[in-house]
């Protein structure tokens, strides 16, 4: 009996060390790695998938802007999943007199190519006609989603005004064949004092 008690005293520290190892080693290697799989919600308004457009399509982005009177802001015309776009005519209807066209710039969608592009913008007091195309080499085209043109609007009178595409808006590929658009979006300009 005495031997047993001596044994208990002698081994107390080693047993404590073992117990400590047991509670550290086992959970760390065998038990702890129970990983949860994360879930992400893709609800960014800038995500074309959450805009309910059926590609191929074009839309305004941002689709709604607030501009202080006499100030300017930019709205882009975006292509959504358009395949082999080489030329486009885009007609934008706006409320003439309340907002005006300040500048029209070529978007990234066309400038990513090495081939030079041409842009012609004609403001017809309520309808902005935009012609944009690559040199007709029958090979250069742009595919995917991106900004075709950027339009700088200047606010003139307070109010809310709609931006729409004219029905004759059309896209063509490198072979000059028309690209059918399934959707054309709308935009809003809020002019505030």
């Amino acid at each position: 009996m005495v031997q047993v008690k001596d044994r208990i005293k002698h081994n107390f520290i080693s047993k404590f060390a073992i117990a400590l190892a047991a509670v550290t080693f086992i959970p760390s290697i065998v038990l702890l790695p129970s990983c949860e799989e994360p879930t992400y919600s893709f609800d960014n308004p800038a995500d074309p998938d959450s805009m309910d457009y059926k590609p191929p399509a074009i839309f305004f982005w941002p689709d709604s802007v607030s501009i202080v009177r006499t100030f300017s802001d930019t709205i882009s015309v975006y292509a959504l999943k358009i395949d082999s776009l080489a030329a486009a005519y885009i007609g934008v209807e706006y409320h003439w007199g309340s907002v005006s066209i300040d500048t029209v710039l070529v978007g990234d969608f066309f400038t990513n190519s090495n081939t030079s592009e041409f842009l012609i913008a004609e403001d017809k007091q309520g309808v902005l006609d935009i012609f944009i195309f690559y040199l007709p080499d029958e090979t250069t085209s742009a595919t995917g989603t991106g900004s075709i043109v950027e339009i700088v609007f200047k606010a003139e009178l307070p109010g809310t005004y709609a931006l729409t595409f004219v029905d004759s808006t059309e896209m063509r590929d490198a072979d000059n064949l028309p690209i059918l658009l399934n959707d054309m979006g709308e935009g809003l300009i809020h002019v505030v004092d």
Partner: peptide, 28 residues
């Protein structure tokens, strides 16, 4: 993806997120 304001970038970020989710599921 959450912070971008560019519609042309959002799909790419989303694709990357989904790709890495698949990878982490595989390893998990």
């Amino acid at each position: 993806y959450e912070n971008t304001d560019f519609p042309e970038l959002a799909p790419g970020y989303k694709e990357q997120v989904l790709h890495h989710v698949e990878t982490l599921k595989h390893h998990n």
